[in-house]
Design a protein around this nucleic acid. Structure first.
Lengths: 180, 180
DNA sequence: GCTATGTTGATAATGATTCTCATTTTCGTA
DNA sequence: TACGAAAATGAGAATCATTATCAACATAGC
């Protein structure tokens, strides 16, 4: 069950290798701005910093609220714009789970992964599984398709919710993910 | 490569066994109305008939336009309401692919399946794969989750688009699916 | 410091979907 | 077959997440 034995390891290789620190991601962001001749502003910096400091899978509204505490003048539109920027820089990944609003994932490593979502408490757990990826390739190949990307979400009930003790309240914080 | 050899058959069992005819689905719809003490109206009948006659994966707007040709008085809201009804009766399945609007799938059989979507022409192909399902179960189990449902979409380029000859124009008809 | 150019915040606009409500239909019953 | 309660309809308003608009305002290079 080491990271080596990926073929039979349902969890896949551990997520977390080759991570970039918050500071590294922040300076990658600044570099990206410079490269594109975009300007550095306090709003952008604050939004990016809050985003990088936050845990995974944050919605725009959540991010907006957190940024407000640091820099109350920031507008909604600017959060949207900056989040789009982060996406374009490869520092954020957009996800659409089954509840309307988009969530942005903090990209701190390069590993592809999918999601397991608790329908009770909203917790999001990430996983990677090479076997599934391989079968997807096979299916696509048989049908003559060349895969560009895929999306897989498993919905269910997490161990905490099943055991009766609700792990966190249904507040927006509850929707944050834990990492595998 | 028979329907039996599901474990190694990437396509899974053929979709199409135990199908219901259009007429059967229509009368199932009427039955469902009666069961719920809902009333039969010409609008509902027309919308349902058009929906059942149409091929798989139609959007509300497409359905609205087709219904208009049969019964020009029907309003947008009624199409939404009826489609919701069909969903509740298990005769339509709602899908959200990566283009904003929801599509409704004509449920004519009971087999679970996933989707392969061409990013060029929008074609949607269905497939089923037991191996993937099994691995999903394993992953969820390892993480202590009990699965309630899942969603898997593979995006890529279909054989026709890759071969250069565009199979259909980019019209809304192009988004209709072919069956495997 | 100055200026061209990019950025911001407030708000209007958008697109998909749902709600509201006055009017019309349906259907069990008399 | 006509009645009337209850449900359904259509038109448009409302909603929700997101994007566009635009005048006022910063930023970065000179």
């Amino acid at each position: 069950m080491t990271a080596r034995a990926a073929a039979t390891d349902v969890m896949g290789p551990p997520i977390g290798v080759n991570q970039r620190t918050q500071a590294q991601r922040f300076s990658a962001f600044k570099d990206a701005l410079r490269e594109r001749s975009l300007k550095s502003t306090s709003q952008r910096d604050d939004i990016a910093r809050v985003f990088f400091a936050n845990k995974r899978h944050i919605s725009v509204e959540e991010l907006y609220r957190e940024v407000k505490q640091v820099n109350p003048g920031v507008g909604y539109a600017t959060v949207y714009r900056t989040v789009r920027l982060l996406r374009e820089c490869g520092l954020a990944a957009e996800r659409h789970f089954h509840d309307g609003e988009a969530r942005f994932e903090n990209v701190e490593h390069e590993h592809h992964h999918d999601h397991l979502i608790c329908e009770r408490c909203g917790r999001i757990v990430e996983f990677a599984n090479e076997g599934i990826e391989r079968l997807q390739e096979q299916v696509a190949h048989k049908l003559g398709f060349v895969i560009t990307r895929h999306k897989m979400e498993i919905y269910g009930v997490c161990p905490e919710c099943r055991s009766g003790r609700v792990p966190r309240t249904a507040s927006r914080r509850a929707r944050d993910s834990s990492q595998t």
